[in-house]
Write a protein that binds this DNA or RNA. Structure first.
Lengths: 195, 195
DNA sequence: ACCTGAACACCGTTCAAGT
DNA sequence: ACCTGAACACCGTTCAAGT
């Protein structure tokens, strides 16, 4: 057997990993620092060496989620050449992440607009806005999206995708209707963008 | 001075009123049954006579919110005759409620998809869907909305309105940009619906 | 019928002390 | 540097007992 490193080794990572697991399995309400510490096998006070309080751990979790989320969206943005393909791929990536990480996404959005939201979290939010803006502008340059102020197009498109993603993720829309609804939402968005 | 009725009088109502106040002022995390009881001046065990547990109080709060929300939307649905006017009024009512009752709306949506969500809460959710469906169908009958399966139009429209409302309510979209963004979102939705 | 007081099993956070 | 143990001030929930 491997000898365990001094004390725990990497408690910080262990806490984050376990916390995300719990978030996924039992929801955000069931996330307790003391239980996390118990599960990992350290004292209840140990986490405070790595996270100054519970919110700091939640913020780290949210930041981690945003990184993966933005990674997925950025990759999707390069799918094909046409605006329609790129928008469709981004929408699918967005909704896919939302349904696969419902609790985490909720945490990401609530952490972001907490009073003392970290600069990194705000930066993530801006990167997301920049991605959407860039996508629409590119579509306009290709004459595949009608002209006019980008915000007036980008905002409704993101609202539709984000709104659909939350409806799909929280179960308002039954799982078996998600695929069709997503197709309809993408088609609807493209209609609204059409030149 | 008025003599106070036996014991408290109407503890149930007092709890709900105070809880909504706290929700509005300090957010859902700050909502504690014991503090509520303290503020009102009863023992910490008293609330249990009226709400079997904390979730029951939250459900009652959510139900109350849904009633007002549906009332506002139902009224808006009768604004003018044209589909464009009605959709615009519903969207404005939706976003208005969301920005005026951000924490409550969040509670309404999370209470609704809690494991043991009450029948009444689910019924509210269905009334909302029925309202949106009726609006679109009416537009189709008037030839102001393109033909096709209602769900394929209703769902994207609701996603856009709901998505915009959450972006506006949680501060992702700065308050001074809400009015313009709302106009753009309504215009975008109408474009997507156009016959 | 409605409420109280005490009790139980949890929390998050802090801080001296250990290794 | 990293963790422990005890302490503090909170929770939600339950239940006998009071009026």
């Amino acid at each position: 057997m491997k000898t365990r490193p001094y004390h725990h080794g990497d408690l910080r990572t262990a806490l984050l990993t376990r916390a995300e697991q719990t978030l996924r399995d039992k929801g955000p309400a069931a996330l307790s620092l003391r239980e996390l510490a118990r599960d990992i096998g350290v004292s209840h006070a140990a986490p405070s060496r790595h996270f100054k309080d519970k919110q700091a751990l939640l913020d780290a979790l949210a930041l981690d989620g945003f990184d993966r989320f933005l990674g997925a969206l950025t990759a999707a943005r390069e799918s094909g050449d046409a605006f329609a393909d790129r928008l469709g791929a981004v929408a699918r990536a967005y909704v896919g992440f939302a349904t696969d990480n419902a609790a985490l996404l909720e945490l990401m959005y609530s952490a972001k607009h907490e009073p003392g939201a970290s600069k990194e979290l705000i930066a993530c939010s801006q990167r997301l806005a920049a991605l959407a803006t860039g996508l629409v502008e590119e579509g306009q340059r290709r004459d595949e999206v009608r002209p006019g102020p980008v915000e007036d197009i980008m905002l409704p498109v993101m609202a539709a995708i984000h709104g659909f993603a939350t409806l799909a993720a929280n179960g308002t829309l039954p799982a078996e209707e998600v695929e069709r609804g997503l197709g309809a939402t993408i088609a609807f968005a493209l209609r609204g963008c059409a030149a």
